[in-house]
Nucleic acid binder design. Structure first.
Lengths: 360, 360
DNA sequence: TCTTTTCATGTAAACGATTGCATTACCCTC
DNA sequence: GAGGGTAATGCAATCGTTTACATGAAAAGA
């Protein structure tokens, strides 16, 4: 069996209390004793039992991360950012994927993280008011990405700004018929990002005196395939858009796929702008609104550290900037030709470098 | 303060032992008592303290996952697969990213997961013999992906078979000058996947009487950018390859990017085949060797469940099949024209349809 | 009717740390 | 030299469960 603190105490000829103090580097231990303890621990290959330690101290050394997906690019980047900071401070990372509806419900009915984590990080989860309250009632610091929960720490980008920039970019290129592929679900339950972006889209259009047309908003649910369908829907309109703003790169990828499959091209036939600056956006030449993804994870973790160390009393809110990255899927509206001309292959040199690898 | 088992016991007018049994659904509790306990627990919003529970029982209800990256597509997919199975059995997932060299060393010198997890899952980590032994000495079941550790459970694909298929595909298309972008590091420390694939590549070539040329092997370290550089290196050879096998899709993406930047095309100038079937492989039309990624995660988790439940005594080894997915980045060698002709744009329709999926 | 089982429950000893408080020894200072 | 402060250490309670064992009552068997 593994050695316990008692074994170490015996071997170093001190009490367990002293061992505990020596090992954790607390003051009021003489140098000689500390060394004796360290040596004994080393010789016995002693490792503290985290459970006993947590039980006695009330601290768990663990931070819970709850999120809707672990396998999507965005989330894995954020988790990587969180991990790098937490690990540097010897905090463990307990991952909780609430993507499945049943898992989500169970989570909030049983609160399995209660007393199990020192802090909580919530990534982009649609939560009801009751659920938010449940989180807060855990009495640990909570840092939230993308949503707003009263009393919690916050990191986010300026979604309105980012979306506006994207749409303005299209308008500046001369587009007037601009579609949006939204990520909204039926029941957003407080996950306001899609709402904010959609609102910005509408606002910018109206500021440019472009009439609002609900048909130009197609829901895509943040997935590639859904983005593809949304684009198909937009293209089937009697008067299809000449430019499309997809509020995630993944959906934009789907949109590009649809274009390719229909023998159309970006930006010749339709301009496409995404959101995120996904790692393959560059590959595809996608114009997009870049946000620093892993960095946001780091910031969340830092907030947690501040809260845990007491360095900072009141929860703070950090807003990180976005920036437009113009690549080759957006172009001047004048370049767009009437759609029917494009259904046959076109000869002639092509305008553009990147982005053409795309298989059709 | 949160209610403890004592509070519940008092309220239900039974002993804490009975509460414990009732709550965990153990036998030898009368129906009436169980209900009384359940009600009391409910009324007090009682939740067991996982630490106290682990300390007393020795079980932690947690599975550790150690891996070299959390933010790469492959790993996040595998983690998602693991998570889905573990979660269904109420096991928690403790994530340990050992990508950083210092973190890796610390991990093996302090063994922070000792007594902290009931089982361990190891993803594609390069480990020294001593490190493998350290894992085994934790005395918990260990399931390994992509490496071999004596005494552990294993899930893997048939790398030799997969790589051979890819290279044979190119040979069948008439290619004789075939490069490989390898993922090998200087010190693989037991992470044999790249070695096996490289060996298969060489073997297939020699079986086809194609002379071996070390210049045609360029290291890419599994990243997009490194894949791009590797391709650049291959193209700069006096006698560049007409086809390239990249042992990951990410590196293949990089390779395609280099081609584009140089004004070249797949498959007209160079055929490219990848490995993984990354989600954007379809988007880019990349021919690739598909492996079921999330599924391997599920299998690992299942093995752990088997080991934990005692359902299966001896560690098993599961090999999952790969399959070649032919898309539009590979084509007949005859189609490849001498390189210098391609630096000017070419007209004409393109040859290919959509992702024909071919079972090998 | 008198054992013998079986079932439901209680008692109390782990599990392995942390930590408030008490104790000791030593050094200052007036 | 007595009182007082300080640094190092030990004692023992505590954290919240689980579980081996003991107990008693009811059911079953002889």
């Amino acid at each position: 069996m593994a050695a316990s603190i008692i074994d170490v105490a015996r071997r170093a000829e001190v009490s367990t209390a002293t061992v505990s103090r020596a090992l954790r580097g607390l003051p009021n231990v003489s140098e000689a004793t500390r060394e004796r303890v360290l040596r004994a621990a080393e010789e016995l290959q002693y490792a503290v039992s985290p459970h006993a330690s947590s039980l006695a101290s009330g601290r768990t050394g663990t931070v819970g991360v709850i999120l809707p997906f672990v396998n999507r690019w965005f989330y894995s980047q954020v988790v990587a950012g969180i991990d790098s900071v937490l690990r540097a401070h010897d905090l463990d990372l307990l991952l909780y994927n609430l993507g499945d509806e049943r898992v989500h419900e169970r989570f909030f009915s049983r609160m399995p993280l209660r007393r199990r984590v020192d802090a909580l990080i919530v990534l982009n989860l649609p939560l009801s008011a009751a659920e938010c309250e449940a989180l807060v009632s855990m009495e640990v610091p909570v840092a939230v990405l993308g949503t707003r929960i009263p009393g919690c720490w916050h990191v986010s980008i300026d979604n309105a700004e980012g979306a506006s920039t994207a749409v303005r970019h299209l308008i500046n290129l001369g587009h007037r018929r601009i579609g949006m592929i939204t990520g909204a679900l039926g029941d957003p339950r407080g996950f306001t990002t899609p709402i904010v972006r959609q609102h910005a889209y509408r606002t910018v259009l109206s500021e440019a005196d472009i009439p609002y047309d609900p048909d130009l908003e197609a829901p895509g649910n943040f997935g590639i395939d859904e983005g593809a369908s949304a684009m198909a829907k937009l293209l089937s309109l009697p008067d299809p858009p000449t430019a499309v703003f997809a509020e995630s790169d993944q959906m934009a990828f789907g949109a590009l796929r649809t274009l390719n499959r229909m023998g159309l091209r970006a930006p010749d036939d339709v301009s496409v702008v995404g959101f995120d600056n996904h790692e393959t956006a560059e590959l595809l030449g996608l114009t997009t609104v870049a946000q620093p993804v892993a960095h946001q994870g780091e910031l969340l973790a830092r907030q947690i550290l501040d809260a845990l160390s007491g360095a900072c009393e009141e929860p703070t809110q950090v807003v990180v900037p976005t920036r437009l990255v113009v690549r080759s899927t957006t172009g001047a509206a004048s370049a767009a030709r009437p759609r029917h001309q494009h259904l046959s292959p076109r000869p002639g040199p092509e305008p553009d470098q990147n982005s053409r690898t795309t298989a059709r």
